[in-house]
Structures are given as C-alpha cells and as structure tokens.
C-alpha cells in the first residue's frame, strides 16, 4: 500500500487533533510491515502481535510530541525491531535457564504460509541481531547507514552482520530448495 509523504503528515496531524479515522489510516498503512518485521525476528505470531501492538501504543502515547516533519516509519520500526531483539534474547535466556513455566504461556503458532515455510524458516537459523539487520534492509528497505541509526550500531557492524547473515541465508535457502 503506497502512501505519499503528504498523506502521512495529514494522518498524523489529524490524529494529533483527535481524529480516529486518521489514526486508523496511519495504523493500517504501517501495521503490515511492523508486524512482519517483528515476526521475522521473533518467529512467534503472538509475540509479533504484542510487539507491533505495543509499538503503536507507544506511538499513541507519544503522539502529541511527535514532530510531523519527520517520517513515522523509522520511528515505529526502531521500536519494533529493538523490542523484537530483546524478546528473542529473553526467550533464549529462558530456554537456557529451563524455566518451563514461562514457556507454557506462549504456544508456537503453526506455520501456514510461505513466510513460515521458507523465508522465516531460513531466518530462524540466524541470531536475532542478524535477523534484525536483514529484515531492516530487505523488508523495510533501509540503507546500512539508516540501520546503524535505528539499532545504535557502528555502520561497519551493520555491514558485517548483513554480509554474514545473507551468506548464511543463501546457504540455507540453497539447501532447502534442493
């Protein structure tokens, strides 16, 4: 769904003035990529929903302070991707500590579309940090410089993670397609 920059500014202005329909336009425009980015990092549809939803709730809370001259997407994606990385790290820690009680409440979703079967499956073999830079680059189409800003990393680190992640991804896809 393409939207002009002017549309987005108008939606933010309208939402700041209390318009639910403008907020909904902003939400519907940004939801797919926010959710998809979270999903591709965490590989859990419930967690992805929570992460993307919490990012939008943060947007609602901060709406009055938001500078309309700045694009909304990078601001939202910064929250989504960083929370997704945190969630993945926390899950890994829980697994290491064997806390079965925490695992009980998050049943994994059954894979039911190509994301789950191919792309997401291949990404699952990477670390959350590598997944995040690849998702930012190829799903959200940020430049390495922008990714460095979003994640608060040196640009060289972003480049090396991208290169290593894509190499691993290519190897995994190759294996699966054979």
């Amino acid at each position: 769904m393409a939207a002009r920059r002017g549309d987005e500014r108008a939606w933010i202005r309208g939402a700041q003035q209390g318009s639910v329909s403008d907020l909904e336009a902003l939400f519907r425009h940004h939801w797919p990529k926010a959710y998809r980015a979270a999903y591709l990092v965490v590989h859990d549809s419930g967690a992805a929903e929570d992460i993307a939803q919490e990012a939008f709730l943060a947007a609602v809370r901060g709406l009055d302070r938001f500078d309309r001259r700045r694009p909304f997407g990078p601001w939202l994606h910064r929250i989504v991707v960083n929370r997704a990385i945190d969630w993945s790290r926390a899950r890994a820690l829980r697994r290491e500590s064997g806390n079965a009680a925490l695992e009980l409440v998050a049943a994994p979703a059954a894979p039911d579309n190509p994301h789950a079967q191919t792309l997401a499956a291949a990404l699952a073999g990477l670390s959350p940090e590598h997944r995040a830079v690849i998702v930012l680059r190829h799903l959200l189409e940020y430049t390495p410089g922008e990714i460095a800003e979003v994640l608060g990393l040196p640009r060289g680190t972003v480049n090396s993670r991208l290169r290593r992640g894509l190499d691993e991804l290519a190897a995994r896809f190759g294996e699966e397609l054979e």
Binding site: W31, P32, F56, H138, L169
Partner: peptide
C-alpha cells in the same frame, strides 16, 4: 525470497490490535 507476503496471522492480528490501539487513543 518473498518479503512482501503477509506473515502468519498478520491480518487478524492487525484487526485485534486496531481495537486495542483505538481504545487507547
């Protein structure tokens, strides 16, 4: 790789989340 395919549960999650976000708004 098909980056623009919907992820599992994307649409339903969007509908549910919109209710939460609009209520918060």
């Amino acid at each position: 790789m098909r980056w623009n395919e919907p992820a599992p549960g994307e649409h339903e999650a969007g509908d549910r989340s919109w209710e939460v976000v609009s209520a918060a708004f």
